[in-house]
Amino acid sequence: GVRVRALYDYDGQEQDELSFKAGDELTKLGEEDEQGWCRGRLDSGQLGLYPANYVEAI
């Protein structure tokens, strides 16, 4: 996976979405899909989806 850092807070709206705060680091686990979602893993171990444009590569 690729380490990325959140640029903005994001509150997951669905069960399969991650929630994070600006500045949090997570691991991107795949390329974004056509809707702009990426699969990732928080350092807590939680897996889920997040909007790709909310993070930057570290």
Rank of each mutant, 00 (worst) to 15 (best):
T27N: 13
D33C: 13
K28E: 12
C38L: 02
S44P: 02
N53Y: 03
V55Y: 01
C38E: 07
R41D: 00
R39Q: 14
S19N: 06
V2A: 07
Y50E: 01
P51G: 02
G23E: 05
L7Y: 04
I58N: 04
K21R: 12
T27D: 07
R3L: 04
D43S: 10
D16N: 07
D9V: 01
Y54S: 13
G23T: 04
K28G: 06
G36E: 04
R39P: 10
L7F: 03
Q46W: 08
D43P: 07
L49F: 08
Y10A: 03
Y54W: 08
R41E: 08
E32Y: 06
A6G: 02
E25L: 11
E34M: 15
E25C: 14
G40F: 00
L18Q: 02
A57T: 10
S44M: 03
E56D: 06
V55N: 01
W37F: 12
Y54K: 15
Q13C: 10
F20H: 02
G1K: 15
G23W: 03
A52N: 07
Q13H: 13
E25Y: 14
V55L: 03
A57K: 06
D16H: 07
I58M: 08
L47H: 13
D33N: 14
V4T: 01
S19M: 04
Q15L: 10
A6L: 00
T27C: 12
R3K: 08
L42E: 01
Y50C: 08
A57N: 01
E34P: 12
Y10Q: 05
G45D: 06
K21I: 09
R41Q: 15
K21L: 10
C38K: 02
W37V: 09
Y54F: 07
Q15M: 10
K28W: 08
D43W: 06
Y10M: 05
L29Q: 06
A57V: 14
G36V: 04
E34N: 15
D33M: 07
G30T: 13
L42K: 06
D16K: 11
E17Y: 11
G45T: 03
K21Y: 04
C38G: 06
Y50W: 01
A52Y: 05
G45P: 01
D24M: 15
N53H: 09
L18C: 01
Y8F: 10
G40R: 00
A52C: 15
K28H: 10
L49I: 11
Y8N: 07
G45A: 03
